[in-house]
């Protein structure tokens, strides 16, 4: 078992880590899409679909393993993602419109499928790793080590794997080329549409994992509109992170920490100047979104006012369909 974390900072961290993992996964999925030049605004819908199928797997199909339930959620999101990829990569429809349709349609679909399952508790949950009492005696180690396994996959293993593939392999070079200059990638013989299609579907599966993780750990029950805007925050985090895997983790953690700061400040009765307790709660509810906004504006502002950075590190062909005839 674990004790009470007295240290306020560590209690914020301990709560922020799992809460942010949802955004880490969704933003990683979105980043993979965008790396190959496909803008996928449908994160909100993919989280919903991933979540509802994990719920259905657990409650209705009697899946007893959280891993399998998560895979089912990812698979469902990937099926939706295949339709999205077909529309955006093969048919080359407008990515913004298809993405918005996916966001709205995915939320609607998941609410429809989840109808009547609201509030039924899910028992197939990811347990927290028990690092042993030697570690949990130390609050600092407990905050970081007493988490569920998906946290370590989302925060370390997945970004490391993506970083290695994208920046240390020839295949990764081609993948990045497909997002930056598909014409050039095509000229050296890589299959532009194939890579786009594959990474779009892969990214949507990871976004689906975000939703499945949500219901298999944090809020072990279905509730409609489950993403509650976290999909949109994930898209902002990708921009903040300049399309780099580990910066995605940092950006998502910042957002999650702001939510934890809100609840912890109130739970511990901390006071801030200029605010009474009630106003403070409203202010703190707003804070995660304000911080997200600042985080997006800051790099652009730095570029504008003389810092030698690019205003945006977006893949050059982001949201641009590839027509071989027009290269």
């Amino acid at each position: 078992m674990f004790g009470i974390i007295d240290n306020a900072f560590l209690s914020i961290v301990a709560a922020a880590i799992p809460a942010s993992a949802v955004i880490v996964l969704a933003a990683t999925g979105a980043m993979l899409n965008e790396r190959v030049g496909v803008l996928n605004l449908g994160q909100e819908g993919l989280i919903g679909v991933g979540a509802v199928f994990a719920v259905i797997a657990s409650l209705q199909w009697n899946v007893r393993s959280p891993w399998l339930a998560m895979l089912i959620g990812m698979f469902a999101a990937a099926i939706i993602g295949t339709i999205f990829a077909f529309a955006t990569v093969v048919i080359r429809a407008n990515q913004v419109l298809i993405g918005l349709a996916l966001a709205l349609g995915g939320v609607g679909l998941s609410n429809q499928l989840g109808n009547g399952r609201t509030g039924s508790p899910i028992s197939t949950l990811f347990g927290k790793l028990d690092p042993g009492s030697a570690f949990t005696k130390n609050q600092f180690l407990e905050a970081f080590l007493h988490q569920d396994p998906i946290v370590y996959i989302a925060y370390i293993i997945l970004p490391a794997a993506i970083w290695f593939v994208l920046f240390r392999t020839k295949h990764g070079l081609l993948v990045r080329a497909v997002g930056e200059s598909p014409g050039a990638a095509d000229a050296v013989g890589s299959n532009v549409l194939g890579i786009r299609f594959a990474y779009t579907v892969l990214g949507t599966a990871i976004s689906g994992a975000a939703g499945a993780y949500m219901v298999l750990t944090i809020t072990p029950t279905w509730s409609s509109d489950i993403a509650r805007g976290r999909g949109w925050v994930a898209l902002a985090v990708v921009i903040f992170a300049a399309w780099k895997p580990f910066r995605v983790v940092a950006g998502a953690l910042l957002f999650g920490a702001m939510i934890s700061l809100d609840t912890t400040t109130q739970a511990r009765g901390w006071k801030l100047p200029f605010f009474n307790a009630v106003n403070l709660s409203f202010f703190l509810s707003m804070l995660p979104y304000v911080v997200t906004l600042i985080a997006i504006l800051a790099p652009a502002g730095a570029a504008k006012f003389g810092r030698k950075t690019r205003a945006t590190d977006a893949p050059a062909s982001l949201a641009t369909p590839y027509f071989r005839e027009e290269r």
């Binding site: 709560a15 809460a19 809020t219 509650r228 934890s260 511990r268 709660s281 409203f282 509810s285």
Partner: peptide
Amino acid sequence: NVVLVNTFFDPQKAAQAADA
């Protein structure tokens, strides 16, 4: 100890309030 989450329904936020 009161934590206001400014909604009756946001399971994730309620979960974080409970954790805090």
